[in-house]
Design a protein around this nucleic acid. Structure first.
Lengths: 261, 261
DNA sequence: GCCTAGGTCCCGTCT
DNA sequence: AGACGGGGCCTAGGC
Protein backbone atom coordinates (compact mmCIF):
# COMPACT_ATOMS: atom_id res chain seq x y z
CA UNK A 1 0.00 0.00 0.00
CA UNK A 2 1.26 3.41 -0.93
CA UNK A 3 -0.20 6.33 0.98
CA UNK A 4 0.02 9.68 -0.77
CA UNK A 5 -0.03 12.79 1.33
CA UNK A 6 -0.80 16.37 0.31
CA UNK A 7 -0.93 19.78 1.92
CA UNK A 8 -2.87 21.63 -0.77
CA UNK A 9 -2.03 25.32 -0.94
CA UNK A 10 -5.39 26.29 -2.41
CA UNK A 11 -8.91 24.92 -2.61
CA UNK A 12 -8.55 24.66 -6.38
CA UNK A 13 -5.58 22.37 -5.91
CA UNK A 14 -7.54 20.37 -3.35
CA UNK A 15 -10.36 19.91 -5.86
CA UNK A 16 -7.90 18.39 -8.33
CA UNK A 17 -6.44 16.01 -5.76
CA UNK A 18 -9.86 14.89 -4.52
CA UNK A 19 -11.21 14.46 -8.04
CA UNK A 20 -8.18 12.31 -8.88
CA UNK A 21 -8.69 10.13 -5.84
CA UNK A 22 -12.39 9.71 -6.64
CA UNK A 23 -11.84 8.63 -10.23
CA UNK A 24 -9.14 6.16 -9.22
CA UNK A 25 -11.45 4.75 -6.50
CA UNK A 26 -9.08 5.34 -3.65
CA UNK A 27 -9.81 5.63 0.01
CA UNK A 28 -9.32 9.22 1.02
CA UNK A 29 -8.94 11.04 4.34
CA UNK A 30 -9.33 14.80 4.57
CA UNK A 31 -8.54 16.94 7.58
CA UNK A 32 -10.43 20.18 7.06
CA UNK A 33 -12.52 22.98 8.49
CA UNK A 34 -16.08 22.77 7.23
CA UNK A 35 -19.78 23.39 7.68
CA UNK A 36 -22.26 20.67 6.81
CA UNK A 37 -25.79 20.54 5.50
CA UNK A 38 -27.84 17.37 5.35
CA UNK A 39 -31.34 16.97 3.92
CA UNK A 40 -33.23 13.77 3.39
CA UNK A 41 -35.24 11.62 5.79
CA UNK A 42 -34.29 14.23 8.33
CA UNK A 43 -32.38 17.47 8.07
CA UNK A 44 -29.44 18.93 9.94
CA UNK A 45 -26.88 21.69 9.99
CA UNK A 46 -23.43 21.64 11.53
CA UNK A 47 -21.71 24.98 11.97
CA UNK A 48 -18.02 25.51 11.32
CA UNK A 49 -15.31 23.38 12.86
CA UNK A 50 -12.38 21.04 12.20
CA UNK A 51 -13.36 17.54 11.12
CA UNK A 52 -12.11 14.36 9.58
CA UNK A 53 -13.81 13.42 6.33
CA UNK A 54 -13.41 9.93 4.90
CA UNK A 55 -14.45 9.02 1.38
CA UNK A 56 -14.29 5.35 0.47
CA UNK A 57 -13.98 3.72 -2.91
CA UNK A 58 -17.68 2.83 -3.03
CA UNK A 59 -18.58 6.47 -2.47
CA UNK A 60 -19.51 6.18 1.18
CA UNK A 61 -18.75 9.37 3.07
CA UNK A 62 -18.14 9.75 6.79
CA UNK A 63 -17.70 13.00 8.70
CA UNK A 64 -16.14 12.52 12.12
CA UNK A 65 -15.82 14.95 14.98
CA UNK A 66 -12.89 14.53 17.40
CA UNK A 67 -14.92 12.34 19.77
CA UNK A 68 -17.46 9.54 19.71
CA UNK A 69 -18.04 6.35 17.78
CA UNK A 70 -20.64 7.72 15.42
CA UNK A 71 -20.00 10.00 12.48
CA UNK A 72 -21.85 13.29 12.90
CA UNK A 73 -22.92 13.17 9.25
CA UNK A 74 -22.56 10.53 6.59
CA UNK A 75 -23.73 9.00 3.37
CA UNK A 76 -23.61 5.23 2.82
CA UNK A 77 -22.48 4.27 -0.68
CA UNK A 78 -23.27 7.19 -2.98
CA UNK A 79 -22.86 6.96 -6.70
CA UNK A 80 -22.69 10.67 -7.19
CA UNK A 81 -20.12 12.89 -5.51
CA UNK A 82 -19.69 16.35 -7.01
CA UNK A 83 -17.03 18.98 -6.32
CA UNK A 84 -16.89 22.71 -6.89
CA UNK A 85 -15.46 25.90 -5.49
CA UNK A 86 -18.11 28.48 -4.57
CA UNK A 87 -17.48 31.77 -2.76
CA UNK A 88 -14.13 30.63 -1.46
CA UNK A 89 -15.45 27.29 -0.23
CA UNK A 90 -14.78 23.81 -1.55
CA UNK A 91 -18.20 22.20 -1.80
CA UNK A 92 -18.50 18.42 -1.83
CA UNK A 93 -21.99 17.11 -2.45
CA UNK A 94 -22.81 13.44 -2.00
CA UNK A 95 -26.20 12.47 -3.42
CA UNK A 96 -28.06 9.28 -2.63
CA UNK A 97 -31.12 8.25 -4.63
CA UNK A 98 -33.08 5.85 -2.42
CA UNK A 99 -33.93 7.38 -0.11
CA UNK A 100 -33.29 10.72 -1.78
CA UNK A 101 -30.75 12.42 0.44
CA UNK A 102 -28.05 14.99 0.06
CA UNK A 103 -24.97 15.64 2.14
CA UNK A 104 -23.17 18.88 1.48
CA UNK A 105 -19.76 19.52 3.00
CA UNK A 106 -18.47 23.07 2.61
CA UNK A 107 -14.76 23.33 3.37
CA UNK A 108 -13.32 26.74 4.16
CA UNK A 109 -9.90 25.21 4.70
CA UNK A 110 -8.31 21.91 3.81
CA UNK A 111 -5.25 21.05 5.86
CA UNK A 112 -4.21 17.69 4.48
CA UNK A 113 -5.44 14.99 2.16
CA UNK A 114 -4.16 11.43 2.18
CA UNK A 115 -5.28 8.69 -0.13
CA UNK A 116 -4.36 5.10 -0.90
CA UNK A 117 -5.57 1.88 -2.43
CA UNK A 118 -6.04 -0.58 0.41
CA UNK A 119 -5.32 -4.19 -0.43
CA UNK A 120 -7.81 -5.78 1.92
CA UNK A 121 -8.85 -9.30 1.05
CA UNK A 122 -9.02 -10.43 4.68
CA UNK A 123 -11.70 -12.82 5.78
CA UNK A 124 -14.07 -11.69 8.50
CA UNK A 125 -15.16 -14.50 10.78
CA UNK A 126 -17.89 -13.99 13.34
CA UNK A 127 -18.58 -16.30 16.22
CA UNK A 128 -21.79 -16.70 18.11
CA UNK A 129 -24.11 -14.67 16.00
CA UNK A 130 -27.75 -15.45 16.63
CA UNK A 131 -27.64 -17.61 13.52
CA UNK A 132 -24.84 -19.73 14.91
CA UNK A 133 -26.60 -20.18 18.24
CA UNK A 134 -29.79 -21.11 16.36
CA UNK A 135 -27.89 -23.69 14.29
CA UNK A 136 -26.37 -25.18 17.40
CA UNK A 137 -29.67 -25.32 19.28
CA UNK A 138 -31.53 -26.76 16.29
CA UNK A 139 -29.04 -29.64 16.28
CA UNK A 140 -28.96 -29.89 20.07
CA UNK A 141 -32.50 -29.09 21.19
CA UNK A 142 -32.01 -31.05 24.41
CA UNK A 143 -29.92 -28.06 25.54
CA UNK A 144 -33.27 -26.29 25.89
CA UNK A 145 -35.33 -29.18 27.21
CA UNK A 146 -34.96 -32.94 27.50
CA UNK A 147 -36.91 -34.72 24.77
CA UNK A 148 -37.37 -31.69 22.53
CA UNK A 149 -37.31 -32.39 18.79
CA UNK A 150 -36.64 -29.78 16.09
CA UNK A 151 -39.23 -29.85 13.32
CA UNK A 152 -38.32 -26.69 11.44
CA UNK A 153 -35.80 -23.84 11.53
CA UNK A 154 -36.69 -20.29 10.50
CA UNK A 155 -40.23 -21.42 9.76
CA UNK A 156 -42.17 -18.81 7.82
CA UNK A 157 -45.49 -17.75 9.37
CA UNK A 158 -47.61 -14.67 8.76
CA UNK A 159 -45.89 -12.22 11.08
CA UNK A 160 -42.31 -13.34 10.31
CA UNK A 161 -39.94 -16.22 11.02
CA UNK A 162 -40.06 -18.67 13.91
CA UNK A 163 -36.51 -19.39 15.10
CA UNK A 164 -37.20 -23.00 16.07
CA UNK A 165 -40.41 -24.93 15.58
CA UNK A 166 -40.32 -28.01 17.81
CA UNK A 167 -42.32 -30.68 19.56
CA UNK A 168 -41.80 -31.65 23.18
CA UNK A 169 -41.76 -35.18 24.64
CA UNK A 170 -45.55 -35.00 25.02
CA UNK A 171 -46.07 -34.09 21.40
CA UNK A 172 -46.96 -30.44 22.04
CA UNK A 173 -45.88 -27.84 19.53
CA UNK A 174 -43.15 -25.65 21.02
CA UNK A 175 -42.22 -22.32 19.46
CA UNK A 176 -38.82 -21.00 20.40
CA UNK A 177 -37.52 -17.47 20.13
CA UNK A 178 -33.77 -17.14 20.57
CA UNK A 179 -31.97 -14.00 21.70
CA UNK A 180 -28.20 -13.76 21.83
CA UNK A 181 -28.31 -11.09 24.55
CA UNK A 182 -30.76 -10.04 27.26
CA UNK A 183 -34.30 -10.72 26.08
CA UNK A 184 -36.54 -7.63 26.10
CA UNK A 185 -40.30 -7.14 26.16
CA UNK A 186 -40.18 -6.88 22.37
CA UNK A 187 -38.78 -10.39 22.12
CA UNK A 188 -41.63 -11.72 24.26
CA UNK A 189 -44.21 -9.93 22.14
CA UNK A 190 -42.57 -11.29 19.00
CA UNK A 191 -42.95 -14.81 20.38
CA UNK A 192 -46.60 -14.10 21.30
CA UNK A 193 -47.31 -13.00 17.73
CA UNK A 194 -45.88 -16.23 16.34
CA UNK A 195 -47.91 -18.35 18.74
CA UNK A 196 -51.11 -16.50 17.87
CA UNK A 197 -50.39 -17.03 14.18
CA UNK A 198 -49.77 -20.76 14.61
CA UNK A 199 -52.85 -21.12 16.84
CA UNK A 200 -55.01 -20.05 13.91
CA UNK A 201 -53.94 -23.13 11.99
CA UNK A 202 -54.19 -25.51 14.94
CA UNK A 203 -56.84 -24.06 17.20
CA UNK A 204 -57.18 -27.17 19.31
CA UNK A 205 -53.52 -27.93 19.95
CA UNK A 206 -51.70 -26.74 23.02
CA UNK A 207 -48.85 -24.52 21.85
CA UNK A 208 -45.98 -23.69 24.16
CA UNK A 209 -43.67 -20.74 23.67
CA UNK A 210 -40.15 -20.49 25.09
CA UNK A 211 -37.82 -17.50 25.11
CA UNK A 212 -34.27 -18.84 25.01
CA UNK A 213 -31.63 -16.31 26.01
CA UNK A 214 -28.64 -15.87 28.33
CA UNK A 215 -30.69 -13.40 30.40
CA UNK A 216 -34.00 -11.57 30.45
CA UNK A 217 -35.12 -8.17 31.70
CA UNK A 218 -37.39 -8.02 34.75
CA UNK A 219 -40.41 -6.63 32.91
CA UNK A 220 -39.90 -9.09 30.05
CA UNK A 221 -39.95 -11.98 32.53
CA UNK A 222 -43.16 -10.63 34.09
CA UNK A 223 -44.72 -10.39 30.64
CA UNK A 224 -43.58 -13.94 29.89
CA UNK A 225 -45.45 -15.19 32.94
CA UNK A 226 -48.53 -13.08 32.26
CA UNK A 227 -48.77 -14.47 28.73
CA UNK A 228 -48.17 -18.00 30.01
CA UNK A 229 -44.92 -18.33 28.10
CA UNK A 230 -41.66 -19.76 29.36
CA UNK A 231 -38.11 -18.57 29.70
CA UNK A 232 -35.10 -20.86 29.44
CA UNK A 233 -31.67 -19.56 30.27
CA UNK A 234 -28.79 -20.79 28.12
CA UNK A 235 -25.10 -20.42 28.72
CA UNK A 236 -23.58 -18.79 25.65
CA UNK A 237 -20.02 -19.38 26.82
CA UNK A 238 -20.84 -23.08 27.17
CA UNK A 239 -21.98 -23.25 23.53
CA UNK A 240 -18.92 -21.25 22.61
CA UNK A 241 -16.67 -23.79 24.32
CA UNK A 242 -18.34 -26.72 22.60
CA UNK A 243 -18.08 -25.09 19.17
CA UNK A 244 -14.48 -24.13 19.85
CA UNK A 245 -13.53 -27.65 20.79
CA UNK A 246 -15.07 -28.89 17.54
CA UNK A 247 -13.20 -26.36 15.44
CA UNK A 248 -9.70 -27.37 16.42
CA UNK A 249 -7.01 -25.17 14.92
CA UNK A 250 -9.11 -22.05 15.28
CA UNK A 251 -7.83 -21.18 18.71
CA UNK A 252 -9.85 -18.46 20.35
CA UNK A 253 -9.21 -16.31 23.35
CA UNK A 254 -11.11 -17.14 26.47
CA UNK A 255 -14.60 -15.83 26.18
CA UNK A 256 -14.82 -12.73 28.36
CA UNK A 257 -18.46 -11.72 27.94
CA UNK A 258 -20.63 -12.54 30.92
CA UNK A 259 -24.36 -11.94 30.99
CA UNK A 260 -26.30 -12.23 34.19
CA UNK A 261 -29.08 -14.76 34.44
CA UNK B 1 -5.32 22.90 13.07
CA UNK B 2 -1.89 21.43 12.57
CA UNK B 3 -1.79 17.96 11.10
CA UNK B 4 1.39 16.02 11.76
CA UNK B 5 2.34 13.28 9.37
CA UNK B 6 4.74 10.37 9.87
CA UNK B 7 6.08 7.46 7.88
CA UNK B 8 7.51 5.40 10.72
CA UNK B 9 10.48 3.31 9.67
CA UNK B 10 9.94 0.73 12.40
CA UNK B 11 7.15 -0.53 14.61
CA UNK B 12 9.08 0.70 17.66
CA UNK B 13 9.05 4.21 16.23
CA UNK B 14 5.33 3.85 15.50
CA UNK B 15 4.69 2.89 19.12
CA UNK B 16 6.34 6.10 20.27
CA UNK B 17 4.33 8.24 17.86
CA UNK B 18 1.03 6.59 18.79
CA UNK B 19 1.75 6.78 22.51
CA UNK B 20 2.51 10.47 22.14
CA UNK B 21 -0.74 11.08 20.28
CA UNK B 22 -2.71 9.15 22.90
CA UNK B 23 -1.30 11.05 25.85
CA UNK B 24 -1.87 14.40 24.16
CA UNK B 25 -5.48 13.36 23.36
CA UNK B 26 -5.16 13.87 19.64
CA UNK B 27 -7.25 12.42 16.87
CA UNK B 28 -5.12 9.89 15.03
CA UNK B 29 -5.40 8.12 11.68
CA UNK B 30 -3.29 5.07 10.91
CA UNK B 31 -2.93 3.40 7.53
CA UNK B 32 -1.65 -0.08 8.24
CA UNK B 33 -1.73 -3.79 7.51
CA UNK B 34 -3.25 -5.70 10.40
CA UNK B 35 -5.19 -8.64 11.76
CA UNK B 36 -7.93 -8.08 14.30
CA UNK B 37 -9.39 -9.99 17.21
CA UNK B 38 -12.55 -8.95 19.00
CA UNK B 39 -14.11 -10.64 22.02
CA UNK B 40 -17.00 -9.38 24.05
CA UNK B 41 -20.73 -9.55 23.50
CA UNK B 42 -19.79 -11.43 20.35
CA UNK B 43 -16.47 -12.52 18.94
CA UNK B 44 -14.74 -12.10 15.59
CA UNK B 45 -11.51 -12.49 13.71
CA UNK B 46 -10.33 -10.53 10.70
CA UNK B 47 -7.39 -11.93 8.77
CA UNK B 48 -4.62 -9.80 7.36
CA UNK B 49 -5.24 -6.79 5.15
CA UNK B 50 -4.78 -3.05 4.73
CA UNK B 51 -7.07 -0.91 6.86
CA UNK B 52 -7.66 2.55 8.18
CA UNK B 53 -7.63 2.81 11.95
CA UNK B 54 -8.95 5.91 13.70
CA UNK B 55 -8.38 6.63 17.35
CA UNK B 56 -10.21 9.60 18.79
CA UNK B 57 -9.40 11.68 21.82
CA UNK B 58 -12.04 9.96 23.95
CA UNK B 59 -10.47 6.59 23.19
CA UNK B 60 -13.02 5.44 20.64
CA UNK B 61 -11.44 3.22 18.01
CA UNK B 62 -12.71 2.55 14.50
CA UNK B 63 -11.29 0.07 12.00
CA UNK B 64 -12.43 0.73 8.45
CA UNK B 65 -12.10 -1.42 5.38
CA UNK B 66 -11.93 0.30 1.96
CA UNK B 67 -15.70 0.08 1.44
CA UNK B 68 -18.94 0.48 3.34
CA UNK B 69 -20.40 2.82 5.92
CA UNK B 70 -19.78 0.61 8.92
CA UNK B 71 -16.46 -0.02 10.58
CA UNK B 72 -15.56 -3.72 10.49
CA UNK B 73 -14.43 -3.57 14.11
CA UNK B 74 -14.65 -0.86 16.71
CA UNK B 75 -14.72 0.16 20.29
CA UNK B 76 -16.81 3.13 21.47
CA UNK B 77 -15.02 5.26 24.06
CA UNK B 78 -12.43 3.10 25.78
CA UNK B 79 -10.53 4.28 28.79
CA UNK B 80 -7.70 1.87 28.32
CA UNK B 81 -5.61 1.57 25.17
CA UNK B 82 -2.36 -0.35 25.50
CA UNK B 83 0.51 -0.69 23.04
CA UNK B 84 3.32 -3.19 22.67
CA UNK B 85 5.51 -4.90 20.12
CA UNK B 86 5.23 -8.70 20.14
CA UNK B 87 6.81 -11.07 17.62
CA UNK B 88 7.34 -8.32 15.08
CA UNK B 89 3.78 -7.00 15.42
CA UNK B 90 2.56 -3.76 16.91
CA UNK B 91 -0.31 -4.76 19.17
CA UNK B 92 -2.93 -2.18 20.14
CA UNK B 93 -5.47 -3.36 22.68
CA UNK B 94 -8.55 -1.30 23.46
CA UNK B 95 -10.39 -2.49 26.55
CA UNK B 96 -13.92 -1.51 27.50
CA UNK B 97 -15.32 -2.32 30.92
CA UNK B 98 -19.11 -2.29 30.56
CA UNK B 99 -19.77 -4.44 28.71
CA UNK B 100 -16.40 -6.12 29.12
CA UNK B 101 -14.97 -6.20 25.62
CA UNK B 102 -11.55 -6.26 24.06
CA UNK B 103 -10.43 -5.18 20.62
CA UNK B 104 -6.95 -6.24 19.61
CA UNK B 105 -5.35 -4.82 16.48
CA UNK B 106 -2.11 -6.48 15.42
CA UNK B 107 -0.20 -4.42 12.87
CA UNK B 108 2.44 -6.13 10.77
CA UNK B 109 3.13 -2.90 8.92
CA UNK B 110 2.32 0.73 9.55
CA UNK B 111 2.47 2.92 6.47
CA UNK B 112 1.56 6.32 7.81
CA UNK B 113 0.26 7.97 10.94
CA UNK B 114 -1.33 11.41 11.03
CA UNK B 115 -2.61 13.16 14.08
CA UNK B 116 -4.02 16.53 15.01
CA UNK B 117 -6.03 18.41 17.58
CA UNK B 118 -9.33 19.31 15.94
CA UNK B 119 -10.86 22.59 17.04
CA UNK B 120 -14.49 21.63 16.64
CA UNK B 121 -16.93 23.67 18.64
CA UNK B 122 -19.57 23.63 15.91
CA UNK B 123 -23.23 23.41 16.83
CA UNK B 124 -25.21 20.48 15.48
CA UNK B 125 -28.80 21.39 14.70
CA UNK B 126 -31.35 18.73 13.77
CA UNK B 127 -34.71 19.44 12.27
CA UNK B 128 -37.84 17.36 12.47
CA UNK B 129 -36.95 14.73 14.98
CA UNK B 130 -39.92 12.74 16.23
CA UNK B 131 -39.92 15.01 19.29
CA UNK B 132 -40.25 18.12 17.11
CA UNK B 133 -43.11 16.62 15.14
CA UNK B 134 -44.82 15.57 18.36
CA UNK B 135 -44.49 19.08 19.77
CA UNK B 136 -45.94 20.55 16.62
CA UNK B 137 -48.86 18.13 16.49
CA UNK B 138 -49.63 18.52 20.19
CA UNK B 139 -50.02 22.26 19.59
CA UNK B 140 -51.82 21.76 16.28
CA UNK B 141 -53.92 18.62 16.73
CA UNK B 142 -56.35 19.75 14.02
CA UNK B 143 -53.59 18.73 11.57
CA UNK B 144 -54.61 15.17 12.48
CA UNK B 145 -58.36 15.64 12.74
CA UNK B 146 -60.76 18.56 12.96
CA UNK B 147 -61.92 19.11 16.52
CA UNK B 148 -59.21 17.06 18.18
CA UNK B 149 -57.98 18.36 21.56
CA UNK B 150 -54.66 17.42 23.17
CA UNK B 151 -55.06 16.30 26.79
CA UNK B 152 -51.59 14.98 27.49
CA UNK B 153 -48.22 14.55 25.79
CA UNK B 154 -45.91 11.60 26.49
CA UNK B 155 -48.47 10.20 28.92
CA UNK B 156 -47.06 7.40 31.06
CA UNK B 157 -49.00 4.13 30.97
CA UNK B 158 -47.94 0.59 31.88
CA UNK B 159 -46.29 -0.47 28.63
CA UNK B 160 -44.55 2.89 27.93
CA UNK B 161 -45.39 6.41 26.78
CA UNK B 162 -48.36 7.52 24.73
CA UNK B 163 -47.23 10.16 22.21
CA UNK B 164 -50.48 12.14 22.29
CA UNK B 165 -53.47 11.51 24.50
CA UNK B 166 -56.46 13.36 23.01
CA UNK B 167 -60.22 13.63 22.84
CA UNK B 168 -62.13 13.97 19.60
CA UNK B 169 -65.11 16.26 18.90
CA UNK B 170 -67.44 13.57 20.25
CA UNK B 171 -65.55 13.27 23.50
CA UNK B 172 -63.95 9.90 22.70
CA UNK B 173 -60.46 9.22 23.99
CA UNK B 174 -58.00 9.14 21.09
CA UNK B 175 -54.54 7.66 21.46
CA UNK B 176 -52.02 8.77 18.90
CA UNK B 177 -48.77 7.10 17.92
CA UNK B 178 -46.48 9.26 15.80
CA UNK B 179 -43.80 7.95 13.46
CA UNK B 180 -41.40 10.20 11.63
CA UNK B 181 -40.88 7.69 8.82
CA UNK B 182 -42.85 4.77 7.37
CA UNK B 183 -44.92 3.16 10.11
CA UNK B 184 -44.21 -0.56 10.60
CA UNK B 185 -46.20 -3.35 12.17
CA UNK B 186 -44.27 -2.73 15.37
CA UNK B 187 -45.68 0.79 15.56
CA UNK B 188 -49.23 -0.56 15.18
CA UNK B 189 -48.67 -3.17 17.89
CA UNK B 190 -47.21 -0.51 20.15
CA UNK B 191 -50.39 1.55 19.71
CA UNK B 192 -52.51 -1.53 20.41
CA UNK B 193 -50.66 -2.12 23.67
CA UNK B 194 -51.34 1.45 24.79
CA UNK B 195 -55.02 1.17 23.98
CA UNK B 196 -55.32 -2.12 25.86
CA UNK B 197 -53.60 -0.55 28.85
CA UNK B 198 -55.90 2.49 28.85
CA UNK B 199 -58.98 0.29 28.35
CA UNK B 200 -58.28 -1.34 31.69
CA UNK B 201 -58.85 1.97 33.43
CA UNK B 202 -61.89 2.97 31.37
CA UNK B 203 -63.51 -0.30 30.34
CA UNK B 204 -66.73 1.32 29.16
CA UNK B 205 -65.29 4.16 27.06
CA UNK B 206 -64.74 3.90 23.36
CA UNK B 207 -61.05 4.41 22.74
CA UNK B 208 -59.79 5.24 19.26
CA UNK B 209 -56.20 4.71 18.13
CA UNK B 210 -54.54 6.59 15.30
CA UNK B 211 -51.15 5.95 13.71
CA UNK B 212 -49.84 9.28 12.44
CA UNK B 213 -47.01 9.00 9.94
CA UNK B 214 -45.93 10.19 6.49
CA UNK B 215 -46.44 6.64 5.17
CA UNK B 216 -47.24 3.11 6.30
CA UNK B 217 -46.19 -0.35 5.15
CA UNK B 218 -48.78 -2.54 3.46
CA UNK B 219 -48.87 -5.18 6.18
CA UNK B 220 -48.96 -2.51 8.89
CA UNK B 221 -51.99 -0.91 7.22
CA UNK B 222 -53.72 -4.30 7.08
CA UNK B 223 -52.99 -4.83 10.75
CA UNK B 224 -54.35 -1.35 11.49
CA UNK B 225 -57.65 -2.26 9.86
CA UNK B 226 -57.79 -5.68 11.49
CA UNK B 227 -57.31 -4.15 14.94
CA UNK B 228 -59.88 -1.44 14.13
CA UNK B 229 -57.29 1.29 14.42
CA UNK B 230 -56.84 4.23 12.09
CA UNK B 231 -54.05 5.64 9.98
CA UNK B 232 -53.66 9.33 9.26
CA UNK B 233 -51.06 10.48 6.78
CA UNK B 234 -49.21 13.70 7.59
CA UNK B 235 -47.01 15.75 5.33
CA UNK B 236 -43.65 16.20 7.05
CA UNK B 237 -42.47 18.72 4.47
CA UNK B 238 -45.58 20.78 5.23
CA UNK B 239 -44.74 20.89 8.94
CA UNK B 240 -41.17 21.62 7.97
CA UNK B 241 -42.29 24.62 5.94
CA UNK B 242 -44.47 25.96 8.73
CA UNK B 243 -41.66 25.61 11.27
CA UNK B 244 -39.22 27.17 8.84
CA UNK B 245 -41.44 30.19 8.26
CA UNK B 246 -41.66 30.68 12.02
CA UNK B 247 -37.90 30.47 12.44
CA UNK B 248 -37.01 33.27 10.09
CA UNK B 249 -33.30 33.75 9.64
CA UNK B 250 -32.61 30.01 9.64
CA UNK B 251 -32.90 29.64 5.90
CA UNK B 252 -33.06 26.00 4.88
CA UNK B 253 -32.71 24.25 1.57
CA UNK B 254 -35.84 22.99 -0.07
CA UNK B 255 -36.91 19.80 1.61
CA UNK B 256 -36.11 16.97 -0.76
CA UNK B 257 -37.35 13.91 1.12
CA UNK B 258 -40.57 12.45 -0.21
CA UNK B 259 -42.28 9.46 1.34
CA UNK B 260 -45.10 7.70 -0.36
CA UNK B 261 -48.52 7.78 1.21
C1' DG C 1 -38.38 -2.17 -4.94
C1' DC C 2 -40.48 -2.94 -0.09
C1' DC C 3 -40.44 -5.35 4.21
C1' DT C 4 -38.52 -8.00 8.17
C1' DA C 5 -35.23 -8.83 11.65
C1' DG C 6 -30.51 -8.61 13.64
C1' DG C 7 -26.64 -5.83 15.44
C1' DT C 8 -20.39 -6.09 19.38
C1' DC C 9 -26.05 -1.94 16.88
C1' DC C 10 -25.07 3.28 19.34
C1' DC C 11 -27.09 6.70 22.17
C1' DG C 12 -29.88 9.38 25.33
C1' DT C 13 -32.86 9.18 29.17
C1' DC C 14 -34.97 7.61 33.07
C1' DT C 15 -35.37 4.63 37.09
C1' DA D 1 -26.13 0.02 36.89
C1' DG D 2 -30.03 -1.89 33.94
C1' DA D 3 -33.89 -0.96 30.93
C1' DC D 4 -36.25 1.02 27.20
C1' DG D 5 -36.95 3.31 22.71
C1' DG D 6 -35.28 6.11 18.78
C1' DG D 7 -32.22 6.39 14.80
C1' DG D 8 -31.01 9.97 8.53
C1' DC D 9 -29.99 3.87 12.36
C1' DC D 10 -27.06 0.20 8.66
C1' DT D 11 -27.08 -4.29 6.58
C1' DA D 12 -28.47 -8.76 4.89
C1' DG D 13 -32.04 -11.69 3.10
C1' DG D 14 -36.67 -12.68 1.03
C1' DC D 15 -40.18 -11.73 -2.02
Amino acid sequence: MKVIHYNPSSLEEAVKIIRDALTSKKLMVIYGCCTIIYEGRGASRLTQGDRLVIVKRDGSVLVHRPFGYSPVNWQPETTDISLSVENGELVMKALRLTPREILEIRFTKIYTITHAILDDRGEFIEYLSEEEIRDYLSKNPSTIEEGLITIDVEKRVEPGFIDLYCRDRNGNVVIIEIKRTTASKDAVLQLKRYIDAVKKYMPRERIRGIIVAPSISKSALELTEKLKLEYKRIDISQIYKVLRSRQRGKSLLHYIGKAKS
